[in-house]
């Protein structure tokens, strides 16, 4: 897999060099696109990664995990959103944490909110998003999506609990 990728990249550069030598237009255009896109990325990436690094150092995950499952009612929902912030990794990490939440006694609505929020407002991802699409875009997306997700998760959780639903939580 790794070596295949390396070969693809080597082939790509041979293609670029050959295009430059023979004046093959699409090839030259590709090279131009490469430089342009590389520049776009290069001027954003260092800042994004430094911010992510600072975030990881100053907001340790362990202290946050201690608060898992604390509070019920509206407090539980707020915690679910706050806890989602420092997470890394997508659903693969959120789901095992959801199981932990459940075992600590959190309601289904809170768990669903947590799953939704962990995909919406993970701060390392937000830093990345805002770097490439702009802070207004990220802010707008959060302000719209978080209430939507919270309210509908609470609703769905409420309906399920009324029916006495028992999730598997087998992970």
């Amino acid at each position: 897999m790794k070596s295949k990728r390396l070969w693809a990249i080597v082939l790509y550069f041979i293609f670029l060099a050959a295009s430059l030598a023979t004046g093959f237009k699409p090839g030259i255009q590709t090279g131009r696109n490469l430089l342009d896109f590389a520049y776009q990325i290069a001027r954003v990436l260092p800042f994004a990664f430094v911010l992510i690094g600072l975030f990881e150092v100053w907001v340790p995950k362990k202290t946050v995990e201690k608060h898992l499952g604390t509070g019920s009612g509206i407090q539980g929902y707020i915690w679910a959103i706050v806890l989602a912030g420092p997470m890394v990794g997508g659903l693969y990490v959120a789901l095992p944490m959801a199981v932990t939440l459940y075992k600590k006694g959190a309601g289904l609505g809170v768990i669903l909110t947590f799953i939704g929020a962990s995909s919406l407002c993970r701060i390392p991802m937000l830093i990345f998003e805002a770097s490439f699409l702009g802070i207004p875009f990220s802010l707008a997306r959060l302000i719209i999506a978080i209430p939507l997700v919270t309210v509908s998760s609470a609703f769905l959780g409420g309906v399920l609990e009324k029916r006495g639903y028992q999730p598997n939580m087998d992970l």
Binding site: A8, I9, L45, V50, G53
Partner: peptide
């Protein structure tokens, strides 16, 4: 923090290269 940033970046360098291509 800067070390973390650098490590994360180098880890993803291959992916970025492929994306660029």
């Amino acid at each position: 923090a800067l070390r973390i940033a650098l490590r994360r970046f180098t880890k993803l360098l291959g992916e970025f290269a492929l994306l660029l291509v």
